[in-house]
Nucleic acid binder design. Structure first.
Lengths: 350, 350
DNA sequence: CTGAAAGCGCTTACAG
DNA sequence: CTGAAAGCGCTTACAG
C-alpha cells in the first residue's frame, strides 16, 4: 500500500492540512512549502487514496449532469441503462446524477437543458452534443469555467471536451462492407445505401468507411445509389420500395442509421410479390426492439452494434474518476463494433 | 443518501458496535437485540456504505487468489490484463491479489497452487478449473470453508462455485455455423471441423452448437469429419493437409480451439500448389497473435472472440464486491461472442 | 453481551 | 500562511 497524507506530512514536517492544500491546489499556502511537498509526493510516488477521499468529501458530494436526446429513442434506452448502472455503483462513493432528456436533436433545448444543469451546480457533464456553433460556443464557456465535459455517442468536431465514448463510425461502415464481402465470395453485389441524413457526420462517416473498404478489398461490390430516409420508417419503406421497383436487381441494402423496420417490410413485400427465392441482403446497425423481429426471421443478415450500455456507463465513470482525483480519461474510448447475426439471439435448441 | 450505521444505532437505542455485530453476523450479541436491529435495517432499507467499510477494514485487507494455466498461453495473456486492471482499480479499496500461474492443464499443479494460496490466507479465489474429480473435491472443501470461488473461462460441471465468467461455448459454435451460413447463400458447403480435444467440454459444446445451428437453419452445410489437433499447430497442419488431400472439395474449416496457424498454413500451401481460385473458408476463435496475420491476409474469414479481458476483470471485481458486503454475483456471466473480420483491424485507409 | 474509544485516509471549518 | 480538531461511515480491540 502507498503512503498516506499523514506520512507525507511527517516527512515534510508540516501538518496534514498543509499537505492537503499543496496537493489540491488550494489557496493560502507558501509557494516554497508547496513546492517541497509536491516534490516529496512525486519522489515517494504518493497517490491520494480514493476511499479516504470519498469519505472526506462526503459533506460536499459530487454531481454529474447528463443531457441527451433519449426521449422516444430506442437506442438511447440502452445508453440510459449504462448511466443508471454507473449511478448505482457510484452512489456509495458519493456520486449523484442529474439527468435531462429531450426528444430529437434540438439545439435550443440542448442549450437550455445544459444551462439548467449548470444552474444546479453540477461538477461535470456528459452529453450527446448536437453539432452546432451555439453548442460548441457553450462548450467553450464550460471549458473556461473548468467544468469537464464528456461527449457520448457523438463527438463534437474540434470542440473542447475531456473525452469521447462512442462508436468508430468509419470502421463501422467498413465492417458493413466486410460482411457483404464475406457473403459474395467474389460475385458481383449491387448495393443500395440508405442513410439517415447527409447532414449527420456519423452517417457520412459510415458511408465513407463502407466505400473505402469496397475500394480496398471488394471490387465486386457496386453502389447503386445513396438515399436518405431521415431516420423515419415510413419514408424508409417508401424509398426502398421505389428503389426495388427501379432496380429489381438489387442484391443488398446497407442502412447507416434508423428506419430499418420500414426497409425490411418493403423488402419482404417485394420478395413476396415477386415470388423470388433470391433475397435482398440487409445489413444495418444496432439492436433496437424494432429490428429484432427481422433479425430473427432472417430478413436482416447482420446488424452492427456499438455497445450502447458502455456509451452510458463509461462517461459517468470516467468523469467521476476525473472529478475525484484528476485521473484523465483517454480522449477517445471507441466502443466495439459488434457484428450480430441470427445465432446471437436464437434460443430454440440451446 | 442512505442511513448510516450510527443512525441505525440511535434508532435502535444501542451503540454502533452492536449494530456492527448484528449486521455482520459477529458473535457475542443478544439474539433479541440482533433481530431488532436487523428488522430495523431491513425496513429502513439500510445498505452498508462501501467507502466507509473499505476504510474501516483497512488494517485487515482483502486478498484474492488467482490460479490459471496462463504460462505460454496467448489467450490467457489478455485474461491476465483484465486481472491486472481490476487489481489496479481496486488497490485503493484495499484489495490485494496473489497469482499462481501454470503451464498447461495439470491437475496436480492446480491443486498444489490452490493449496498454497489457501496457506497464504486468501479470502477468495478465481480460477480456470481443470475438470477433474480431485479439483472438484477441493472446491467442495473450499465451499465448506466458506471461501468463495469464481470460475473463469471454463466452468466446473456441478461443482460448487459462486459464479462463472466466460464464453457460452454452445452459442459460439452456433455462431460459427451462422457465419458459414451467411457465406454460402444456400449453396452446399462441405465443412471440416478441427477440434482441440474430444475430452474438453468447451470444445465439444462448440461442436454441438455448430451442429444444432446447421440442423435448424443450414441444411446446405455438411460436415465431412471431426478431427483432433490437440491444440497443437504442427499436428493441426498435418491433419488439415491430409484432409485436403483426401477431400479436395472441402469448402470450409471450423476450428473450435487452438492450432489455427497450422491449419492456415496447410490451406495456403494447398491453394498455392493447386493454383486454385476457390479458397477454403476458415472460421476460428479468439484473437491471439498467432492468428492475426491470417486474419489480415484473408486466410481466415472470421474469428469469434470471447472478451478475454472481461474474463479476467469481472471475476476479481465480483469477488471483491462479494467479500466486501456480500453482494452475490450472477451465477453465469456469459461474455459476448464477438465476430471479428478483417475490417475490425485494417488500418490503411481509416 | 454491550459500549466507548481509537483508527482507516482524507477534507473542512476554525483558530491563530 | 499554518496547525489542531472534528468529521465522513465503518471496524477493531479493549473495558466492563
Amino acid at each position: 500500500m502507498g503512503l498516506s497524507i499523514r506520512q507525507i506530512a511527517d516527512l515534510a514536517g508540516v501538518s496534514r492540512g498543509t499537505v492537503d492544500r499543496a496537493l489540491n491546489n488550494r489557496p493560502g499556502i507558501n509557494p516554497q512549502v508547496k513546492a517541497k511537498i509536491l516534490a516529496l509526493a512525486a519522489e515517494t510516488g504518493f497517490r491520494t487514496n480514493r476511499a479516504g477521499k470519498i469519505l472526506g468529501i462526503r459533506k460536499t458530494p459530487l454531481t454529474i449532469g447528463i443531457q441527451m436526446p433519449s426521449i422516444g429513442n430506442e437506442f438511447f434506452r440502452e445508453v440510459r441503462c449504462g448511466i443508471d448502472r454507473a449511478a448505482a455503483e457510484l452512489a456509495d462513493y458519493g456520486l449523484t446524477l442529474s439527468i435531462r432528456e429531450m426528444k430529437g436533436f434540438s439545439v435550443g433545448t440542448q442549450i437550455t437543458q445544459i444551462r439548467s444543469l449548470l444552474a444546479e451546480g453540477v461538477n461535470g457533464l456528459a452529453l450527446a452534443p448536437v453539432d452546432h456553433p451555439d453548442v460548441i460556443a457553450l462548450l467553450e464557456d464550460l471549458a473556461a469555467a473548468r467544468i469537464p465535459v464528456m461527449t457520448m455517442n457523438t463527438d463534437i468536431a474540434g470542440g473542447p471536451r475531456l473525452g469521447y465514448v462512442g462508436n468508430d463510425y468509419t470502421r463501422s461502415g467498413a465492417i458493413a462492407a466486410g460482411i457483404l464481402g464475406l457473403m459474395t465470395d467474389g460475385r458481383p453485389l449491387r448495393t443500395l445505401i440508405v442513410t439517415g441524413s447527409k447532414q449527420v457526420l456519423g452517417h457520412n462517416q459510415r458511408i465513407s468507411g463502407f466505400c473505402q473498404a469496397i475500394r480496398q478489398r471488394y471490387p465486386q461490390i457496386s453502389i447503386l445509389d445513396i438515399l436518405e430516409n431521415q431516420d423515419d420508417d415510413r419514408r424508409s419503406g417508401q424509398i426502398v420500395r421505389e428503389a426495388l421497383a427501379r432496380w429489381p436487381e438489387i442484391d443488398a441494402i446497407y442502412l447507416t442509421a434508423a428506419g430499418v423496420a420500414g426497409a425490411c417490410q418493403a423488402c419482404q413485400e417485394f420478395a413476396g410479390g415477386r415470388q423470388i427465392e433470391r433475397q435482398v441482403r440487409i445489413v444495418c446497425n444496432d439492436q433496437t426492439p424494432g429490428i429484432m423481429p427481422y433479425l430473427l426471421d432472417g430478413t436482416i443478415a447482420a446488424s452492427i452494434g456499438q455497445e450502447p450500455f458502455r456509451q452510458g456507463y463509461e462517461p459517468v465513470r470516467l468523469l467521476f474518476e476525473y472529478l475525484l482525483d484528476g485521473t484523465l480519461p483517454p480522449p477517445l474510448t471507441l466502443t466495439r463494433n459488434e457484428i450480430m447475426i441470427y445465432e446471437h439471439f436464437f434460443k430454440e435448441a440451446l
